[in-house]
């Protein structure tokens, strides 16, 4: 496609004259990040998939043996199935809670914050300037038996003995994850709300809707993409979180990622760890797909 014009000038000038098609230029621009993504994302994933189909021990000649055994184990062992179900369950619950809590915040920033809008956005991201680990550890301090919450409750005399159930259970994991991922839910919802044409809201009011009807009929359907985006952005990474379950979850709060880590670490069974990883990816993929389909169905109900 390249056309070289003129005969004079340096080779560099000639090179500059090469006219690439629009698509080719776009591809050229996207090349470095594309290569980076392929190298650091696609290749490792393919390696994990390959690994998951190998046996733990090579055969007598030292060759890799292909096997479905890892998957059979993952999908028949109640321990793994239970962990998988718990992880997906926690991630869905965390995503829903986070989005429900994030929506009013995003709404407030988009509609009511006026000239302080950018300050609010900044304030919401401030906690994320510190490391994830530190934030989880501070939750441990807050939720602990002699932590901040219990201390305050004791001090005010609302309770006589400290709560013990605040830490080391699923509830604690959900609380901490919901907080950790809040900003990722607020931002996409905020963006969709800011883009919402205000005159559509005025038109709905003009045609008789009160605040609640208008929200259900116009605001929510038209910010659906933001909401679904937020659900995905929270759900997918939380399913694979292992820091929070380790530090906060206790025995009952362990998730699938902890098991994967164990297989790649202590247990030294990489193929099984790989099979667990792939199974988790697939399960979460299906859960995400189900949410998309449900959201689309719900969207059609709006009238």
């Amino acid at each position: 496609m390249g056309v070289i014009e003129g005969e004079g000038g340096s080779a560099l000038a000639k090179l500059g004259n090469i006219k690439l098609s629009e698509a080719a230029r776009g591809l050229a621009l996207a090349m470095p990040p594309l290569a980076y993504t392929l190298l650091l994302l696609a290749v490792p994933i393919l390696a994990v998939i390959y690994l998951s189909f190998t046996a733990r021990e090579p055969d007598a000649d030292g060759n890799m043996v292909m096997s479905f055994a890892n998957y059979v184990r993952v999908w028949t062992d109640p321990l793994y199935l239970h962990l998988l179900a718990r992880s997906v369950g926690i991630s869905v619950i965390v995503a829903v809670i986070t989005v429900v809590l994030a929506y009013p915040i995003a709404y407030f920033i988009a509609f009511e914050s006026g000239k302080w809008r950018h300050l609010w956005i900044l304030l919401i991201t401030v906690p994320f300037w510190t490391s994830y680990l530190l934030r989880v550890l501070s939750w441990k301090i807050a939720l602990g038996q002699s932590g901040a919450i219990n201390s305050i409750l004791l001090w005010t005399g609302l309770i006589a003995t400290p709560f013990e159930g605040l830490l080391y259970n699923i509830g604690a994991v959900v609380t901490v994850l919901a907080h950790s991922y809040a900003v990722f839910a607020i931002l996409p919802i905020y963006v969709s709300l800011v883009r919402l044409d205000r005159s559509l809201l005025e038109a709905a009011t003009d045609l008789g809707d009160g605040a609640v009807r208008r929200f259900v009929r116009i605001t929510l359907p038209l910010t659906q993409r933001g909401v679904v985006g937020a659900l995905m952005v929270v759900m997918i990474p939380t399913a694979g979180d292992y820091v929070t379950p380790v530090l906060i979850g206790g025995k009952d709060g362990i998730m699938i990622a902890n098991q994967i880590q164990a297989q790649f670490g202590k247990a030294n069974n990489w193929p099984l760890g790989a099979a667990l990883s792939v199974s988790t990816m697939l399960t979460i993929g299906f859960a995400a797909l189900a949410i998309l389909v449900l959201a689309r169905k719900a969207g059609r109900l709006a009238r």
Binding site: D197, S199, L200, A204, I218, P221, A302, R303
Partner: peptide
Amino acid sequence: NYAIFPHL
């Protein structure tokens, strides 16, 4: 701008 509801 007529404010036609785009999802309906």
